[in-house]
Amino acid sequence: MAMGAADVVPGVSGGTIALIVGVYERLLRALGSCTPDKLLWLARGRFGETWRAIDGTFLVALIGGILTSIAAFANLLGYLLHTHGELTWSFFFGLILVSVYIVGREVRRWNLWTLLLTALGAAFAYVITVAAPMQWSSAPLFIFLAGSIAICAMILPGISGSFVLVLLGLYATILGAVRSADLFTLAVFAAGCAVGLLSFARLVSWLLEHARSATMAVATGLLIGSLNKVWPWKQTISWRENSKGVMEPMLQDNVMPATYEALTGEPSWWIAGLLLMMLAVALVLTLEWIGQRISRG
């Protein structure tokens, strides 16, 4: 459910949550085992063997929690971001900030090479966060392609699949489909997610097995670069009209709380924001502690 809540928010990665609570590599192994030959197993009646091979109980529990969370929190998170944006983003900033520490610890040896990879990952994530959003068509083919791209980001620590949808101009479309239970749009999007997930998970598993420190160094950099997106206090540089005719920010610059108050005339709530950042840090460290106990037990 924590992964689902994270995936709803542009800037926060469900893959980061999976890594923090200790299920990330198990998830990749389970997804990587969902190969075409398993369909032949099913056709031959090898149901129990197939279920064990794909870690079916784990996948069903995890995916069920993600879907439940998305359905339950889509409206709530939309409301919080609209009415209490600075405080909500402060909490998310704390989540990602402490995740830099958590993921960085996975690098077995820091050297010039891993530092370079971290810098490259940070630069890549930063460029993504400052990119101007596009506007893809909401035709089924583009919904399918968006799903396959976004899901790859969702399972990478540091890259938000929701933010990829924002860049493609389809975030409001998919979130609206969740809210209105548009089953056709959701089915097309889910099909794209399935194709992207099953192909990309095996690549990430291979990288973790053969180049773990390098992969985690890049993931650490991605988290550092994504902090730019979730900084709570922003100045809107330009606006755009979305598909519903509502004006929304397109390009924004990060500013300090005092500058935010001077520019907008609104309170920055920086003390409450700082407390929420600290709460997020405590929450992540608690989740990690629980995850470690579960993995040991």
Results as ranks from 00 to 15, higher is better:
142 F>K: 00
137 S>Q: 08
117 L>V: 12
157 P>E: 13
120 L>T: 06
125 A>V: 13
105 R>F: 00
124 F>L: 13
112 L>Y: 13
100 V>C: 12
140 P>L: 09
113 W>T: 14
162 S>Q: 10
134 M>G: 05
124 F>C: 09
130 V>H: 06
139 A>R: 02
112 L>S: 10
134 M>E: 15
118 T>W: 13
121 G>I: 05
115 L>F: 13
137 S>Y: 04
133 P>H: 10
114 T>F: 02
111 N>M: 09
153 A>R: 01
126 Y>R: 03
102 I>M: 10
130 V>R: 11
166 V>P: 14
103 V>P: 04
111 N>K: 07
136 W>L: 14
160 S>R: 08
132 A>P: 15
105 R>M: 02
144 F>K: 04
99 S>W: 04
137 S>W: 06
98 V>W: 01
106 E>K: 13
150 A>M: 09
85 G>V: 09
160 S>Y: 01
166 V>M: 15
141 L>S: 14
115 L>Q: 09
138 S>N: 09
127 V>Q: 15
166 V>D: 02
161 G>Q: 01
167 L>D: 10
120 L>E: 03
149 I>W: 01
125 A>F: 08
101 Y>C: 08
123 A>K: 02
126 Y>L: 15
162 S>G: 14
168 L>A: 13
140 P>Y: 04
145 L>K: 01
151 I>Y: 03
127 V>L: 15
87 L>K: 08
156 L>G: 09
108 R>C: 01
161 G>L: 01
146 A>G: 12
101 Y>D: 06
131 A>T: 15
116 L>G: 14
159 I>H: 00
148 S>I: 12
99 S>E: 03
114 T>R: 00
156 L>W: 01
151 I>F: 02
97 L>M: 07
101 Y>L: 14
99 S>V: 03
90 S>Q: 07
96 I>S: 14
129 T>W: 00
91 F>D: 02
127 V>H: 05
96 I>N: 12
112 L>Q: 09
93 F>D: 06
127 V>M: 15
88 T>M: 12
145 L>C: 13
107 V>I: 12
129 T>E: 00
90 S>T: 12
142 F>V: 07
170 L>W: 04
